[in-house]
């Protein structure tokens, strides 16, 4: 007997279905309700709480913020909400700089990921079959190990007495170690390393679809390989470039772990500012305001861009 048959014939199932039917619930609405309720409570509702606490003031208490409703001295209920935290974010240069530098770091890392990822994707797309699968697997393989440990691997590599400096010094190329850890450079490396397959895979998917006849036509008409690449291959792979860049840029902008482990104290990124505001300063309302501004300035445009892109692909 099949699983579905056994289930729909079982007594508990029939009983529940009968009771639900009597109460006016259809099976269909129940199926819709489960994901809807879960995501409504644990994904959507938290943003309302976030918005409401961003309007509160920090308190040394549990919980460490002022309540939204409070009893006035005369006993009437009053709403306490202030935009003080947002004014603070706008006047303090730290936050503005953090937002700007997050965008800069994400952008630079995305460009580097593209420069390193494109040749690899191109090479894999042109490779004959058994080699192609092996290379593709080799690109993905490091990313099944832990993300945190991959960032940690670079700590051992970039330190003053790390592998790179030790090698260069023993070769006599440098006399004293180069400071690489705790710089923006280390953060770029960390981000490129972590998100490189997100760049390579969409590019690869795009480049395998490239019609070889177009390249032949270009070379038959006398174009050099260089010219063919820049006039045919590159423009045609633009959708892959856009998709890959988005996949690197989006997670990079809110990154916390990479700047925390590889960056220096002056590597400002908004994810790190939010983390410190919450865990070190214990200022929950300001942390919430930072998150709300991040949602409006960074996440909303990205979601809008993606929906535009999706519609274009479908149309």
């Amino acid at each position: 007997m099949s699983a579905g048959n056994a289930l729909t014939r079982s007594a508990p199932w029939r009983g529940t279905a009968w009771v639900m039917g009597k109460l006016g619930f259809s099976g269909r609405s129940l199926v819709i309700a489960i994901p809807m309720l879960w995501l409504g409570v644990f994904f959507l509702a938290p943003f309302f709480v976030l918005g409401r606490i961003s309007l509160a003031e920090a308190l040394i208490a549990r919980p460490p913020y002022t309540p939204l409703f409070d009893r006035a001295p005369d006993g009437s209920l009053q709403i306490i909400a202030s935009l003080e935290n947002y004014r603070f974010l706008m006047t303090d240069a730290l936050y503005r700089n953090a937002y700007l530098s997050s965008i800069r770091v994400a952008l630079v890392s995305t460009i580097f990921a593209l420069l390193i990822g494109y040749p690899i994707a191109y090479y894999i797309a042109r490779a004959p079959e058994p080699k192609r699968s092996v290379l593709l697997l080799m690109v993905i393989l490091p990313f099944w190990t832990s993300f945190l440990l991959r960032v940690y691997a670079w700590m051992g590599f970039l330190r003053s007495n790390g592998v790179i400096n030790n090698t260069l010094m023993s070769l006599g190329l440098i006399d004293s170690p180069i400071q690489m850890m705790q710089t923006d450079f280390a953060v770029y490396i960390g981000i490129v390393y972590t998100y490189l397959p997100f760049m390579i895979l969409p590019l690869y998917a795009n480049l395998t679809k490239l019609d070889g006849a177009l390249l032949e036509a270009a070379s038959d008409l006398g174009a050099s390989p260089m010219v063919t690449f820049f006039t045919v291959t590159l423009p045609l792979s633009l959708p892959g470039i856009v998709a890959g860049s988005m996949l690197v840029f989006i997670p990079a902008i809110g990154e916390y772990v990479i700047p925390a482990l590889l960056g220096g104290p002056d590597t400002l990124m908004i994810g790190r500012v939010l983390w410190d505001e919450f865990f070190s300063s214990r200022d929950w309302p300001v942390a919430s305001a930072v998150a709300i501004v991040m949602l409006v300035l960074v996440v909303a445009p990205i979601m809008w861009l993606q929906s535009v892109q999706n519609r274009r692909e479908e149309g």
Binding site: F42, L50, A287, A291, L295, M303
Partner: peptide, 22 residues
């Protein structure tokens, strides 16, 4: 609600869920 978590920075998801739990 089903696609937004894909682009949501982890710090925001974490903070907002904690505030909900509290």
């Amino acid at each position: 609600m089903i696609t937004a978590p894909l682009v949501m920075p982890e710090v925001i998801t974490g903070l907002s869920l904690l505030l909900l739990f509290v």
